[in-house]
Write a protein that binds this DNA or RNA. Sequence first.
DNA 1: AATCAAACCAACCGCACTATG
DNA 2: CCATAGTGCGGTTGGTTTGAT
Length: 224
Amino acid sequence: MRKPCCEKTEITKGAWSKQEDQKLVDYIQKHGEGCWNSLPKAAGLRRCGKSCRLRWINYLRPDLKRGSFGEDEEDLIIRLHALLGNRWSLIAGRLPGRTDNEVKNYWNSHIRKKLVKMGTTTTTSTALDPKKPSHHRDNKVPLLMQPDARNPILFRPPATTLDQKRAPNHDDEVDVSDSMSINGGNQLQTGVIMSNKSCCLPDLNLDLTLSLQLAVGETQQSDI
DNA sequence: AATCAAACCAACCGCACTATG
DNA sequence: CCATAGTGCGGTTGGTTTGAT
């Protein structure tokens, strides 16, 4: 059995105070992100490193947008979710200033209900097989989205600093306004960071009601 | 005004992946 | 190769807020 990430004793849990936030922000501004395990001690916080990381990523990061989601963002989330399933970090990576937690919460509290009401989806929180434990990752990625050069969208890591660190192969990323065709004509300027590789590939058609089925068909055929 | 239910969202938990020794 | 630490991700929980009665 794996050891817990931190000792249960002397660890504060629950809501963060302003003082704690300030300590965390000050520390990260001075020393940068990373080394989350040693950060709490160094920053004078009685928190688990994971908790610090989460607080920073989901709440304190200066580039966060906060506030309610726009229609464009909602539309994009719906389309990306149809493509990616519950890969919230990937989805959030295409929504500048949004976090995976925020997107996930928004999906579960707003969009999912909306779609169910419209009869568009019967999605549960575990997108693919609700019976199987959710942490079985091999079950999370739809067949369509198994790593595959035909799906350039998958090869772009989330646009967070940490993920960029983790994916040195993507340091050739350039800022390109990624335009997607929404609702058969409206151009949605997402302004996300795309890799050179993916921007050279054909425009993504995220009109999922049609292309997803087609793509699934293609994938299944090619897998045979 | 009080109570209850629903909605929302921050935070936690546990697993998987990756790097390192 | 194996064990372990560090980190990231997705699902879930629980406290708070809002709305309905």
